[in-house]
Design a protein around this nucleic acid. Structure first.
Lengths: 251, 251
DNA sequence: TCAAAAGTGTTGATATTACACCCATGT
DNA sequence: ACATGGGTGTAATATCAACACTTTTGA
């Protein structure tokens, strides 16, 4: 049946209205490993269990606003406005789950978001919000509330696929970074080892990806590495790298 | 039926409840051109204007069920159950739009689905449902109600990207098809011309894509073509073609 | 026999991979 | 000096793109 509209500005009575949540898969690379942000739930259902940060969408806000608000409330982490654009942050919609069979309270729709961010510290536990912490994605087998294990797995798979053909790996790095740092991101996200020499050539040789800053970075042992930034004017989520940085190229 | 559990704890009062629609981007290839399914709206808002088939999600149904029901109601087209799997049909979630600024009646969330299907006839116009028709995607500039132009564009772009590295192009074909038919799908979806000889080698040479049936098809002029089917046991949405059938390879 | 479409062979250009080798710094 | 990581050169292999050529049918 077509949309039935009793009045020009009403929604049909037969249509259900659904509570809608946003849940955020926030990923970062720490200690050469991919980590996800989880919070410990203070309230029922699943009280005391770990879950993805998220919560109900409020009237009058967009889904992106709700995602940013929930992240900030639960982790004191402020997502820069317009993080869908360039820079060391990236927020994009993942997919929508529900409404049936995923929340003991009843039908709830959840719109999941994926956030890719450079490593950053979290405030010490003990605010009025639940404690937020980073957990290695390999350690999260079947431990999260609701269907959040599935959502996390989908988010990780999305990240793995996207860095292959988009400049999004740079979203895990600070504004200026070395090729080795970038390679560390690929190795952590894919869980593989990459040949440093070939990676360097591919990354620096792919048009529309990296731009040299001219400066040198790093104070560790060995020759200092050149610092790069993301090529100017590229939308990391729209740019397609050619040739791609192939996942198959792992040794 | 609605799974409304009286519940250990209820959804917080502060949380908004949103009407939720599903809208379907149904694509097919007809006359060597990519077409989308649209319906003419019988009711306000946007009465008389073309729109994607879709409508409100009812209590107790899943999003996929709602998408299939709306398609069937508005186009008399029955989506086979489990069309997310193998075969000449493919239904997948596209993304979620809203809730603000997209429906004059107020905040409405829309979960968009993408359906890839072989060409099929539509019932003659004049049922109690709105008339459904195929329109070439090139002809749909800014003509659809709501934000459906954007949703259609997103669906087309998803289809274009996916057939490059997945066997999903076969979802546009009947169960058995020739390499030329398959090439026609790529040409229509990408809007390019492909070299028939190189395409044949790539398509038949890519593991996990095509399986020869041994039979021959076609009664037209020229040498009869071998009939193929999708390789058995492949999930078209999960399989990754290697090497991919590159869009760049268009001549 | 001819037109049309299917399918194979071949070749130069480009990409990938593996690894030898040099460069620049801290200790 | 030497260890450590940064970065370049090069050669074997695979893939891509263009196109000559053969095969198999209908008219």
């Amino acid at each position: 049946m077509p949309r039935t509209t009793p009045a020009p500005s009403a929604v049909p009575e037969t249509a259900g209205a659904f509570p809608v949540t946003v849940d955020v898969v926030a990923l970062t690379v720490r200690d050469a490993e991919l980590h996800a942000l989880v919070v410990d739930r203070l309230l029922e259902p699943y009280r005391g269990q770990a879950a993805l940060p998220g919560g109900f969408v409020l009237p009058g806000e967009t889904l992106e606003q709700a995602a940013a608000r929930e992240l900030e409330e639960e982790t004191r982490l402020t997502v820069p406005a317009g993080a869908t654009g360039t820079g060391p942050w990236h927020l994009e919609q993942l997919r929508t789950y529900g409404p049936l069979g995923r929340d003991p309270r009843g039908p709830v729709l959840s719109v999941a978001y994926l956030l890719l961010a450079p490593a950053f510290g979290l405030p010490a536990a003990g605010g009025d919000a639940a404690e937020a912490r980073w957990v290695p994605v390999g350690d999260t087998r079947a431990g999260l509330a609701f269907d959040h294990d599935q959502i996390l797995a989908d988010g990780v798979e999305r990240a793995r696929a996207k860095i292959e053909y988009s400049p999004l790996a740079a979203a895990f790095c600070p504004p200026e970074f070395t090729v080795a740092e970038l390679r560390g991101v690929y190795e952590a996200v894919w869980g593989t080892r990459l040949d440093a020499r070939n990676f360097h050539r591919k990354a620096t040789g792919t048009p529309g990806f990296l731009e040299p800053t001219g400066r040198l970075g790093g104070g560790g042992p060995g020759r200092p590495a050149e610092l790069f930034r993301l090529a100017p004017g590229v939308d990391p989520s729209a740019t397609v790298l050619h040739p791609p940085l192939l996942r198959a190229g792992a040794s």
